[in-house]
Simulated scan of single mutants.
Amino acid sequence: MAERDAALDALILKAHARDDRAALVTLYAQAADLAETVDRECFFLTYAYIFALELGHASQAGLRARLVAYGRE
């Protein structure tokens, strides 16, 4: 698990360095999917949602729905 987290963290950092916001939507959503707690999941969902909103990304409605389901909108 730690190796997977470290690999995903590295990909997120690289995407930030490239300002690749489309990749950040995907990577943060993946991190949310792998989160072990609701708080951690919502943390990553929030970042995925913010980048999705900035881009008009197709996943924004689904990301918002997940946050709403947790009362985190």
Rank of each mutant, 00 (worst) to 15 (best):
residue 18 R to V: 14
residue 58 A to H: 12
residue 72 R to P: 08
residue 23 A to I: 00
residue 69 A to S: 14
residue 29 A to H: 02
residue 10 A to M: 09
residue 41 E to V: 00
residue 57 H to P: 09
residue 16 H to N: 06
residue 48 A to E: 00
residue 45 L to M: 02
residue 1 M to K: 15
residue 43 F to L: 03
residue 25 V to D: 02
residue 7 A to W: 11
residue 19 D to W: 14
residue 22 A to P: 00
residue 46 T to Y: 03
residue 35 A to F: 06
residue 18 R to Q: 09
residue 54 E to Q: 12
residue 15 A to E: 06
residue 9 D to K: 03
residue 47 Y to T: 11
residue 2 A to L: 15
residue 9 D to C: 01
residue 29 A to N: 12
residue 5 D to R: 14
residue 33 D to A: 11
residue 6 A to N: 15
residue 57 H to K: 03
residue 21 R to K: 11
residue 11 L to R: 08
residue 37 T to F: 09
residue 31 A to N: 01
residue 5 D to W: 05
residue 70 Y to V: 15
residue 54 E to Y: 15
residue 17 A to P: 01
residue 29 A to S: 13
residue 66 R to A: 07
residue 55 L to A: 14
residue 17 A to L: 06
residue 50 I to S: 13
residue 8 L to C: 08
residue 56 G to W: 11
residue 14 K to G: 01
residue 70 Y to S: 14
residue 16 H to E: 12
residue 16 H to L: 13
residue 25 V to H: 01
residue 65 A to H: 12
residue 68 V to N: 15
residue 27 L to G: 02
residue 40 R to E: 02
residue 46 T to A: 08
residue 71 G to M: 11
residue 71 G to C: 13
residue 71 G to L: 06
residue 49 Y to G: 02
residue 5 D to K: 09
residue 39 D to M: 03
residue 28 Y to K: 04
residue 26 T to I: 08
residue 22 A to D: 05
residue 28 Y to W: 08
residue 70 Y to H: 14
residue 41 E to N: 03
residue 39 D to I: 01
residue 68 V to M: 10
residue 10 A to I: 04
residue 1 M to R: 15
residue 33 D to L: 09
residue 62 G to I: 12
residue 24 L to K: 02
residue 16 H to T: 11
residue 44 F to E: 02
residue 65 A to I: 13
residue 45 L to I: 00
residue 10 A to W: 05
residue 26 T to C: 06
residue 24 L to F: 01
residue 15 A to P: 00
residue 29 A to T: 06
residue 8 L to P: 04
residue 14 K to M: 06
residue 47 Y to L: 14
residue 61 A to L: 12
residue 48 A to D: 10
residue 4 R to F: 14
residue 42 C to F: 03
residue 1 M to A: 12
residue 36 E to A: 09
residue 10 A to H: 04
residue 60 Q to P: 04
residue 14 K to E: 09
residue 68 V to Q: 15
residue 13 L to I: 05
residue 16 H to R: 14
residue 9 D to Y: 06
residue 34 L to I: 10
residue 34 L to F: 11
residue 36 E to C: 05
residue 19 D to L: 11
residue 21 R to M: 13
residue 30 Q to L: 09
residue 43 F to M: 07
